[in-house]
Nucleic acid binder design. Structure first.
Length: 877
RNA sequence: GCGGGCGUGAUGGAAUGGUAGACAUACCGGACUUAAAAUCCGGAGGGGGUAUCCCCGUGUGGGUUCGAGUCCCACCGCCCGCACCA
């Protein structure tokens, strides 16, 4: 015996060695002009926070496995990496630690790049970029200008959450109970001039094209559909009984014009111009202020009461001559949907009903549910919004809802109010234009110059890039670009008069809306090289967290269309396949209970099993620790496991293997000590199987005897079955099932290895070699370093990373006989072994001669005999 | 409230309408060892029986089918998304 089997595989030595080999051999660098068919795998690029976490390891490992597999399948695989590097945390760091955002960001990138490289990802690092590189954001400025020329960008006033202390705009999620999350100041609503991408122009197309994205999770498509929020309805003018200031009518939007005869009030938003015009009245003003305050508070919208205030105004009922409806300002009507005004039909809308009950307004049902009695049907506390026939509605009576909608729309189309058609069919979308202006420093400058004479003037292409100045200070609140002594003062490109630069920068979602295209030609002088981009795109498989299911993906879809319109790309959908992976979760541990409880890190505790019960205690002191719920890894709960520590203890391959085992990739995976240990054991097991084979080879002279082929066919069948299945599982991103197949294979090899330990035939030796070689290849996308070491030890020339994916021998996948389970009345009572494709007569004979079947038949013939060829037999008695 | 998803051993999870629990983790037993770890072999859904075997079993209750974890209906529970969208 040589010592091979006793030598443990040492990832600390092997992993850096192979990483260097791949790098030196430029294994993962790709060119677009390659005869192989292109394949583009992309994982959502990370924000450079400074350290990677296990979620990254999982995400990038999945992409890497697919990339390596596709490469072995002969595809020209693009698998790049970059950094989503602009954003607020860099500015926060600047304020807290006096570091420049740029220095902070690039230092973080360097640290994270090193970590990512240590997990052995097959990335084309020559394509790496950060969105804060001037080379990148200058191209983004070019895109902005092209979009502007094309009419895809507008400037408009929009309402923002303004933090008066930090002097900045806050996103909705940064507003907590009406206060700024950082300053605690009461947030104001301000109208600011903002640049916006006209996403809403594409609403219908973005909605319709969702149907073509059949490699996307249904869940994400549903979320986008809801977000776009299409609704078809009628715009309807209600004439005021008396003119008030300039107002002679109120325009409402409704999807239920069929219920017009049940209308009992009009409600307008607190932000409606008519409401504003009434604000001289202190009660109205107070109501509006109160409503707005609530608008920014989170939560409990569900329980919020429907409140309103009567304006003193009335409108004419459009279909009941002589009748009028009161006009209220109501807290549940939104200004930015529809027209900011509604008509209330309490019988058929729950909100309207709640409101009507509170203010004692009439409730008249006009839709009669099928089977209900018109004389007795009533609406009490629950509005009826189901199907039925219209009644109490004169010329609409007897119609179904849809027919009534059409009839009433036609009716109003022929009437006029203020010389306008009284009703107009309209499609409304919830999706709004994308405001991209941010009053921040660390982002892509918006390439526009404001001139008193010429207005907003685009920076001429020749003057790009507009570079962020580096000499900025974060000593005072507000936007450092605005405070900069000289940066913003420039001459107007049009009239050469004094002008100022736009000091707003772009939302960081802009940066991530086209990076996937930039990767196809990352060093080009133009944003893309269309000829190259069009060959790679769309991304074949995009992988990332579901938290980006709406905004990032929707904006990228918009951008792709906008880039098509401006000639930078020639496609509409950026991501052909989308996969949303689950999170990495971990148990939590707490020292002490209740509010005094202190979270402790898994690294600091020890777990023991006492009488079948798991107990935790502090490693140092032995103090008892409570085992808490399983949650997403987070710093605040301290239930994090550091990838660096795992890689240095177990190696990257073990971490990768564990991230792929057991849990289906779309679900959360629970990190456990036992799990990582198990993965490590398997890695050593593969190494040992290869070692067992090599030991046998080394000593072949004394061990080779006989010509037995015992176990050979059996082993080869398992090998080829695994070869046939694993690839498909990887392609379908069912890594857990691929892993199970590989376990089965290694179990079969181990068993075989035992059986030939003392003497082996040539046929057995050959089968053994084939088995370990295939095992190494199948395992290679997941544990690439181990695979290279094994491949080299097996004496193969070249790297396994360059070896083509193995092909299964079809003849070994089919059996000559098959075991058929035999059921009696659906319950399994035995089995028979028959040749594949056996005639029914033979099967029938075999089945009836089974003792268990004969016993249950008691001599009678079966009522029915169901034979599913090569699958199952069911005897019905 | 609306929309989507999921309920299978102690645990993570397998299962084109066709032998439920593959594979793994934890556990138990055995071998090796002075001992432990590692490794190897074996066991294991629950209940009954010496055993051939028998009964029960995929959240609950119905249904379709020769046959249901899988399809249909109702209910219960959990998770996620949107949330006063007219």
């Amino acid at each position: 015996m040589t010592g091979r089997t006793t030598e443990r595989y040492n990832p600390r030595v092997e992993e850096p060695r192979w990483q260097k080999a791949w790098e030196d051999g430029k294994s993962f660098e790709v060119k677009h002009d390659d005869s192989r068919k292109p394949y583009y795998v992309l994982e959502m690029f990370p924000y450079p926070s400074g350290r990677i976490h296990m979620g990254h390891v999982r995400n990038y490992t999945m992409g890497d496995v697919l990339a390596r597999y596709m490469r072995a399948m002969g595809r020209n695989v693009l698998h790049p990496m970059g950094w989503d590097a602009f954003g607020l945390p860099a500015e926060n760091a600047a304020m807290q630690n006096k570091v420049h955002p740029k220095a902070w960001t690039y230092a973080n990138i360097a640290a994270m790049r090193k970590q990512l490289k240590s997990i052995g990802l097959g990335i084309d690092w020559s394509r790496e970029f950060a969105t804060c590189d001037v080379e990148y954001y200058s191209k983004q400025q070019k895109l902005f200008l092209d979009f502007l020329r094309e009419g895809l960008v507008t400037r408009k006033k929009s309402k923002v959450n303004w933090d008066p202390v930090d002097m900045t705009v806050l996103a909705n999620e940064q507003v907590v109970d009406g206060r700024g999350w950082r300053s605690g100041a009461i947030v104001e609503q301000r109208e600011l001039n903002q640049w916006a991408f006209k996403v809403s122009d594409f609403a219908e197309e973005l909605l319709e094209a969702l149907d073509t994205l059949d490699h996307w999770p249904e869940k994400v498509r549903v979320m986008q559909r809801n977000w776009i929020g299409k609704s078809e309805g009628l715009r309807l003018l209600f004439e005021l009984t008396e003119q008030w200031q300039k107002f002679t009518s109120i325009e409402v939007f409704t999807t239920r014009p069929d219920t017009i005869f049940g209308a009992s009030f009009i409600a307008i938003s607190a932000d409606h111009p008519l409401a504003q015009s009434l604000a001289d009245n202190p009660e109205v003003a107070a109501f509006i202020a109160e409503t707005r305050r609530h608008g920014t508070a989170t939560e409990t919208i569900d329980k919020a009461e429907k409140l309103g205030i009567f304006t003193g105004l009335h409108v004419k009922h459009p279909v009941k001559p002589g009748a009028t409806l009161p006009v209220y300002i109501a807290n549940f009507v939104l200004m930015d949907y529809g027209t900011g005004a509604i008509f209330g039909c309490p019988a058929h809308d729950q909100r309207d009903l709640d409101f009507a009950r509170r203010y004692d307004l009439p409730v008249l049902p006009v839709v009669l549910p099928d089977g209900a009695d018109a004389a007795t049907f009533e609406v009490d506390s629950e509005a009826y919004n189901g199907p039925g026939r219209i009644y109490h509605s004169e010329f609409l009576d007897g119609l179904e809802i849809d027919a009534a909608k059409k009839a009433i729309a036609a009716h109003f189309a022929e009437r006029t109010v203020d010389n306008l058609p009284q009703g107009k069919v309209e499609v409304n979308y919830r999706l709004r234009d994308w405001g991209v202006s941010r009053q921040r420093y660390w982002g892509c400058p918006i390439p526009v110059i404001h001139c008193e004479n010429c207005g907003a003037v685009p920076v001429p292409d020749k003057d790009l890039p507009v570079v962020l100045p580096e000499d900025v200070s974060f000593d005072r609140p507000g936007n450092p670009l605005d405070h900069h002594p000289s940066w913003k003062h420039v001459a107007c490109p049009k009239c050469a008069g004094p002008a100022t630069r736009e000091t707003d920068t772009m939302d960081t979602f802009v940066d991530s809306s086209w990076y996937f295209a930039r990767f196809t030609a990352p060093h080009a002088d133009t944003p893309t090289i269309p000829g190259i981009a069009n060959t790679w795109l769309p991304v074949d498989q995009y992988i990332g967290g579901v938290e980006h299911a709406i905004l990032h993906l929707l904006y990228s879809r918009f951008f792709t269309r906008a880039m098509k319109q401006t000639g930078h790309l020639n496609l509409s959908e950026p991501f052909k396949g989308l996969f949303t992976q689950g999170m990495v979760v971990h148990e939590t541990y707490q020292l002490g209970t209740g509010p005094n409880g202190e979270w402790v890190s898994p690294a600091d505790i020890r777990i023991e099993q006492v009488d079948g019960e798991r107990r935790a205690s502090m490693r140092q002191t032995g103090e008892a620790v409570a085992i808490g719920s399983i949650e997403k890894m987070s710093k605040s709960k301290k239930n994090v496991v550091d990838p660096d520590e795992i890689v240095s203890t177990y190696g990257a391959d073990t971490a990768r293997w564990f991230m792929l085992s057991d849990s289906p990739p779309e679900r959360d995976v629970q990190w456990t000590e036992a799990g990582i240990e198990g993965a490590s054991r398997f890695l050593q097991r593969v190494w040992k199987l290869v070692g067992d084979f090599l030991d046998l080879e080394d000593d072949i002279a004394s061990r080779l005897k006989g010509d037995s082929d015992a176990g050979v066919l059996e082993l080869r069948k398992v090998v080829h079955r695994a070869v046939a299945n694993v690839g498909g599982e990887i392609e379908g991103l069912r890594f857990n099932r691929a892993v199970a197949q590989i376990y089965e294979l290694s179990n079969a090899i181990a068993k075989f290895s035992q059986s030939v330990a003392s003497s082996v035939s040539r046929a057995q030796r050959d089968a053994f070699r084939e088995a370990v070689e295939r095992l190494v290849q199948l395992v290679a996308p997941m544990m690439p370093h181990l695979a290279e070491t094994c491949w080299a030890a097996l004496g193969k020339t070249g790297l396994v990373v360059d070896a083509p994916w193995p092909v299964a021998d079809q003849s070994l996948l089919v059996d000559s006989t098959v075991v058929l389970p035999v059921q009696v009345n659906g319950k399994r009572r035995g089995e028979i072994t028959v040749p594949v494709g056996a005639a029914k007569e033979l099967v029938e004979k075999e089945v009836l001669s089974l003792e268990a079947v004969a016993r249950m038949l008691e001599g009678k013939p079966p009522k029915k005999l169901v034979i599913v060829p090569d699958r199952i037999v069911n005897v019905v008695i």
